[in-house]
């Protein structure tokens, strides 16, 4: 990771090393508290993907690809979408598509509102990896076809 020729200056690298974990953690916080406060899967997913983009900008592409490469990002993107549809379809077992069949719990607690946190997590997978893919594809444009959707 510490190749001085790649990426930006030492100052940027040091600051990035300190903050990138916090950014990732903040993203996860936003995702997991999406049902009790403003935020949710999309906003949290964007923040998570920003943490990886941050690494890419500061240390160069190779360092970021050591952590997450295109294959893994694409895998997570499809996985998030499948997860979302599966959770929605499970509701059909108890009556309706998208039915929130879990116990709702107490309002304003972390473990409440049934399936909504799970939807948020699925969306965050999709958004985080999708946005990361968009950025690396636009930066590198190496693979021939492009099929990014939300």
């Amino acid at each position: 990771m510490d190749d001085p020729k790649k990426g930006m200056t030492l100052i940027v690298k040091t600051i990035t090393r300190l903050t990138v974990g916090l950014i990732l953690l903040f993203g996860i916080y936003i995702v997991s508290h999406g049902h009790v406060s403003p935020g949710g899967g999309f906003a949290g997913g964007v923040i998570i993907s920003l943490s990886f983009i941050h690494i890419m900008l500061a240390f160069g592409e190779e360092a970021a690809f050591k952590k997450v490469n295109q294959g893994i990002a694409s895998l997570f993107e499809s996985f998030g979408a499948i997860l979302f549809i599966t959770i929605a379809a499970i509701g059909m077992g108890s009556g309706y598509f998208f039915l929130n069949f879990l116990r709702k719990g107490e309002p304003f607690k972390l473990f409440s509102s049934g399936l909504i946190p799970l939807y948020n997590i699925a969306i965050s997978f999709k958004v985080a990896s999708g946005l990361f893919m968009i950025v690396i594809l636009l930066m590198l444009l190496k693979i021939p076809k492009k099929g990014e959707k939300q």
């Binding site: 979408a81 499948i82 599966t86 059909m92």
Partner: peptide, 23 residues
Amino acid sequence: MTQNLLPLFIIIPLAAAFLNSLI
């Protein structure tokens, strides 16, 4: 329940699309 046919028109193509991109 016959009504459960309706969402299948959306579930089947979307699930198949993402299954395709997954494996």
